[in-house]
């Protein structure tokens, strides 16, 4: 027994590539060094300064896409998740269809499909209804289907809504049936029991996966570059493509783009961890 443990520990020691102390998070150190290097480049090289200036609006666009898209995705996900656990066959079927179809199609294709098939169709449908009813304000409301940003938001939130449905469903199902029964037995309605008893407990379970998906969505928002049409409103990746295509500075452009995504996702993960800690379950 003892010899086995010894053998294992020597094996681990022998397997170490470098005799570095383990208690330091080296990846953060490496990142910090890279960050400092890049900071040095930006402050000294006009080429990088120009690149960052051009990309700045893309950063803001990406953050807007992520935050707005995620808020909608949270709503779609909740509806989808509740639909998935519903005992009503129609609701359950519709929800399952939504989740399975979206999850079975690449997000890029979902985005393109919504932007170039569903949104134009919805737009012309609303226009026709507006003309028929002689209600121009209805037509104005259809901007959702024409606006570049809103089409991106729509695609991302419908796509991520399906992923989040499964997160919600798993979270709600992880709360024991007895909780719902106890709440219902006290005379609370299904909705009240969900709101006051099941969901508050489920939220704590689903917070880590929700946080992960938030960061994943930030990165996947780069796929929106495939459907962007208005240069001034492009998100970060499309801004990068535009810049490298016109200046041929691929090196500076994609270094900058990658770095900016990295900074955003690291920043968000700090926020996500903070929120998780504040909401953690008192066990």
């Amino acid at each position: 027994m003892t010899s086995q443990v010894e053998r294992q520990s020597t094996a681990i020691k022998g397997g170490r590539l470098l005799p570095l102390p383990r208690n330091i998070p080296w990846w953060i150190v490496i990142l910090a060094i890279c960050g400092l290097l890049i900071l040095y480049f930006i402050t000294t090289s006009t080429s990088y300064q120009e690149t960052f200036t051009f990309l700045a609006s893309g950063v803001i666009r990406t953050l807007q896409l992520t935050v707005v898209g995620y808020l909608f995705a949270l709503v779609f996900g909740l509806i989808g998740g509740l639909g998935r656990i519903s005992k009503n066959t129609v609701i359950n079927t519709v929800a399952t269809l939504y989740v399975e179809v979206i999850r079975g199609v690449p997000l890029l294709v979902v985005l393109i499909y919504i932007a170039f098939v569903l949104a134009p169709a919805a737009s012309s449908l609303v226009s026709q209804i507006a003309t028929a009813l002689n209600a121009p304000f209805l037509d104005n409301m259809a901007f959702v289907f024409r606006d570049d940003f809103m089409r991106g938001v729509l695609g991302l939130s419908i796509g991520y809504g399906a992923y989040l449905s499964e997160v919600y469903r798993a979270g709600i199902e992880s709360i024991s049936r007895g909780q719902m029964e106890a709440a219902r037995s006290l005379g609370m309605s299904y909705g009240q029991s969900l709101r006051y008893v099941v969901l508050p407990q489920a939220v704590r379970v689903i917070l880590p996966p929700l946080g992960n998906d938030f960061i994943a969505m930030l990165k996947d928002s780069s796929l929106v570059s495939a459907i962007g049409a208005v240069p001034l409103e492009a998100e970060l990746t499309l801004r990068g493509r535009m810049y490298s295509a016109t200046t041929y500075k691929a090196f500076e452009t994609w270094n900058s783009v990658a770095l900016l995504y990295l900074m955003m996702s690291l920043g968000l993960s700090v926020i996500v961890r903070y929120v998780e800690r504040r909401w953690s379950v008192p066990k």
Binding site: G178, L186, Y196
Partner: peptide, 26 residues
């Protein structure tokens, strides 16, 4: 159900609420 109280084998208290909140919620 509001007129019929039930006590379960597994208690089924609401773990995210204090004892008093468990009793005041409904």
């Amino acid at each position: 159900r509001a007129e019929v109280g039930i006590v379960f084998q597994q208690f089924n208290l609401f773990p995210h609420l204090t004892v008093l909140q468990n009793i005041t919620l409904a």
